[in-house]
């Protein structure tokens, strides 16, 4: 793609002109960065370089640098607090990877010597509880459940009580997938947060919004509304092992500045990596190739 943006392969150096910038913008757009962020990133990259002769290697590097600059400040692992239990609420739209990510995180925290309890707060979807129970077994972590159709807020409350009584370090609460434009389901989520706060006004200490890398510009709306309703404190992006580049993260970092804690790179328990802005930027701009 960059090579194409640069024109002929036998012309290693080309003047950075409007045509080139437009092609670069398009490259970023195809990574889901969105039109306005792509424009901005390309313009920043061109500053002081416009009209100069550059190679495609140069351009990839410059673009990746520009992207890294935006992402660096938000690349932070999920913070661990001295609070017991530290409550981690996991939210997001349907099918984004919430349950799987809880399994992976629980396993990582266990490996770090933390005691973890999981609450199966998705009391709606068929076999959501069974799915989480398998993950609990894999991670070696107990899973608290409630019958299908029961109130997720009361399960969250009970789970807080149990985690406190057992002296658990972390309580991770799974929730049903919900689209952010569904006011009733968002209210249900707000209620879960309210009930948790009755137990501990500082909880949930982390509210993780799980985003699917294949999602396009709707991710902006997801972050905006989930943040409003559930005080999202950080993001996890899943499915980055596929062909989707997840460029909307750049637009999100630019607009909301929320920390990005981790990325999902597969369906196995170890397929959760720290978010590395440099690596992400290189993959996004193609600077990682060759």
């Amino acid at each position: 793609m960059i090579a194409r943006a640069m024109g002929r392969a036998d012309a290693p150096r080309r003047v950075m002109d409007d045509a080139m910038l437009e092609r670069l913008e398009e490259l970023l757009i195809t990574a889901d960065m969105g039109v306005s962020t792509a424009l901005k990133v390309t313009a920043n990259m061109a500053e002081g370089r416009y009209g100069r002769k550059v190679t495609s290697e140069d351009v990839k590097g410059f673009l990746a640098q520009e992207v890294t600059k935006i992402l660096e400040p938000v690349a932070r692992p999920m913070p661990i607090y001295p609070k017991k239990p530290q409550v981690v609420l996991v939210v997001g739209v349907n099918g984004s990877g919430k349950t799987t990510t809880i399994g992976k995180l629980a396993s990582q925290f266990r490996a770090a010597g933390k005691s973890v309890v999981i609450a199966a707060g998705d009391t709606f979807r068929a076999a959501a509880v069974e799915q989480l129970q398998v993950w609990g077994e894999r991670a070696g972590v107990p899973v608290m459940t409630a019958p299908e159709g029961s109130d997720p807020a009361s399960l969250a409350f009970e789970a807080m009580t149990r985690a406190e009584a057992e002296g658990a370090d972390l309580l991770m609460i799974d929730t049903a997938g919900r689209l952010q434009n569904r006011a009733d389901l968002m209210e249900e989520l707000a209620k879960i947060v309210r009930v948790i706060r009755k137990k501990d006004p500082d909880a949930p200490h982390n509210t993780l919004l799980v985003l699917d890398a294949t999602t396009g510009q709707n991710a902006l709306g997801q972050v905006e509304i989930f943040q409003k309703v559930a005080d999202v404190s950080g993001l996890v992006m899943t499915k980055l092992d596929g062909t989707a580049k997840g460029g909307v993260l750049v637009a999100l970092a630019d607009r909301f500045g929320l920390p990005i804690h981790a990325i999902g790179v597969g369906e196995q328990i170890d397929d959760l990596s720290p978010f590395d802005p440099d690596e992400f930027a290189k993959a996004l701009t193609g600077a990682a190739e060759e």
């Binding site: 757009i29 195809t30 990574a31 889901d32 739209v93 099918g95 699917d212 890398a213 294949t214 999602t215 396009g216 510009q217 709707n218 596929g242 062909t243 989707a244 580049k245 460029g247 909307v248």
Partner: peptide, 15 residues
């Protein structure tokens, strides 16, 4: 296909 899919739709469709 997820109706919220972005640019990756072409890869998915083609492949």
């Amino acid at each position: 296909v997820d109706g919220l899919t972005g640019q990756d739709a072409v890869n998915t469709a083609e492949n």
